[in-house]
Simulated scan of single mutants.
Amino acid sequence: MRGIVYLRRYWQLYALLVLPLAYFFIFRYSPMWGVQIAFKDFNFFQGITGSKWIGMDAFREVFHMQDFYRTLRNTLMLNLLDLIVSFPAPLLLAVMLFEARPMWFKRLSQTILYIPHFISWVIIGGIVYQLFGTQSGMINNLLDRLGLDAVPFLTDKTWWLVIYLLTGVWQSAGWGTILYLAAMTGINRELFEAAEVDGAGRFKRIWHITLPGVKTTIVTLLIINLGNMMTIGFDRPFVIGNKAVLDYSDVLSTFVYRTGLESGQYTLATVVGLFQAVVGLIFVLSANFASKKLTDEGIL
């Protein structure tokens, strides 16, 4: 009876959950029915239920493919480098904006930093080729006018990796800054005032007050990023990558695209997707366990 009274009082808040729950049910839980394709010789015309069971044969086939191990290596490498380069960037930007005094400068900076997050990777890819293309790129045209040799930004593996990482920072850092700024605004201002009275400088206040104040947010985002080590977006490596750097740009998502959509081997593509999900879950649980042991912070 008490629960019914509570629901009647706050039914508007529960009504707001309808769309998010519907989204997760339709796009997250319902597709799990298709996981059984990984254990069947899937035939498009017979459907999931009519296809023949083959057990673990598809897994054995995938684990004997050289392309799978190459794309697995590239996925882990790019995600690890992204974690090292891109993860600290939003935190550094948030600290600088939090310490900025002029309000107009802070608002203008936030707006400029947020914009790249809403730009499609197709458009970003076009910008990258316009800037860094070997023959027609703006930077190489400028180097040519200065009498310097062109730099193979997008055809040399090392240079491509640098462009890939920097583009990712530019696209995602502003959005991540929102989370840290929201956490920083919740820190008690009296702590900063007391530290300033005690003679603590700006860097000491950041180190002893600001960063500890957002420790929970840092740990949560780190665990989520570690859980995504096996998953990587399709659009970014596909749009920026090319055949000259295929040894670095070919990742699990592009492998699934070629195997599933281009070759029609839906069973093998589902196997790779299931493998990513299971390993990602293990990464999340392991990172959460280690975080609780070391910092007493976690997401579960």
Rank of each mutant, 00 (worst) to 15 (best):
I224G: 09
I218W: 01
T216L: 04
K215T: 13
M230W: 00
V219S: 01
I240G: 03
V245Y: 08
G213F: 00
L222D: 14
D247G: 12
G241L: 03
N225W: 06
L226I: 05
K243W: 07
M230P: 04
L226M: 06
I223Q: 00
V219P: 05
V219L: 04
N228V: 05
I232Y: 11
P237V: 00
A244Y: 15
D235F: 08
P237R: 04
F238R: 08
G213M: 00
K215L: 12
L222T: 14
T231Q: 14
I224F: 10
V239T: 13
K243C: 10
T220D: 01
G241C: 02
T231N: 14
T220C: 01
V245C: 00
N225A: 10
K215V: 09
I240S: 02
L226P: 08
P237G: 13
F234S: 13
D235H: 13
R236W: 12
L246T: 15
T217C: 12
G241S: 05
I232M: 14
N242Q: 13
I240Q: 01
I218L: 09
M230E: 05
T217E: 07
L226S: 12
M229G: 03
R236E: 11
I232N: 09
I240L: 15
P237A: 11
T217M: 06
I232P: 09
T220V: 09
T216M: 03
T216G: 06
F238C: 06
N228H: 15
M229P: 00
L221A: 07
N242E: 10
P237D: 06
G213R: 01
T231P: 07
G241M: 00
G241V: 03
I223V: 14
L221W: 07
V239F: 04
K215S: 12
D247P: 10
M230Y: 05
M229T: 04
I224Y: 12
T216Q: 08
I240M: 06
V214L: 09
G241P: 03
T231D: 05
K215N: 09
N228G: 15
V214M: 11
T231E: 13
K215Y: 01
N242I: 03
V214K: 07
G233Y: 09
L222A: 14
F238S: 14
V245H: 04
G213H: 09
N242D: 07
F238M: 14
V219E: 00
A244V: 13
N225Y: 06
F238V: 01
I224K: 09
D247F: 08
F238L: 14
V219Y: 06
G241R: 00
I240C: 04
T231H: 15
F238H: 05
T220M: 01
D235M: 09
G227E: 06
P237T: 00
L221R: 06
D235T: 11
G227H: 03
R236S: 12
K215R: 09
T220L: 02
L226Y: 05
T231W: 03
G241H: 01
I240N: 06
G227Y: 00
K243M: 11
N242P: 13
L226G: 13
I224C: 13
L226W: 02
